[in-house]
Amino acid sequence: MLNNLYKSVIIISLLSISNLQASQSGLTKHLTEVSPQAIAPKLKLEDTDEELIDIKSLKGKVVLVNFWATWCPPCRREINSLERLYSTLKNKGVVVLAVNVGEDDATVLSFMNDVEPELTFSVLFDKDSKTMEKWGAIGLPSTFIVNKKGKIVYKAIGGRDFDNKNILDKIVFLTKEK
């Protein structure tokens, strides 16, 4: 039965391609500066290797925290640009923490297996959404940029084109701060 349902969805999806354009919003090429800057809330979660990642241990690095889910269309649309950003800037001390909200390991790992190119940044699990709430994120995706001192300096609500020059330049600038 699921197979038939699945086939139906694919057929209707293909028939609806023209409608897709009308129902998608473009990925934004802008980050909002946070003022006054605030210390980043606690973030201590397991990653896909079951290792605890604590943002406190990342002081001295620029950290991009992205809250997402596999079923969230803008999250999926922006994730490749997030990987490109990470590939470009990881050697400059930039860390990406992609925090999946509310899903189980199998769902997330299955999705990651299908993404090309492969995701090389850290994917963490916020299964009860408590961390997302502490960060004040309301919708998905939501993104925060934390500077070397552990303060939130930029934020973004909704999908972003993370490897566009405007965003890359802002993050590169943060890597040069002391």
């Binding site: 699921l2 409608n19 009308a22 129902s23 998608q24 596999t70 079923w71």
Partner: peptide
């Protein structure tokens, strides 16, 4: 599982729509 995820994605992205998206 992959099929289920793709299935959900198709639903949300394309909206399983009636083909009459409106925007203003």
């Amino acid at each position: 599982m992959n099929k289920i995820v793709l299935f959900i994605f198709c639903i949300l992205t394309i909206g399983f729509s009636n083909g009459f998206a409106k925007e203003k």
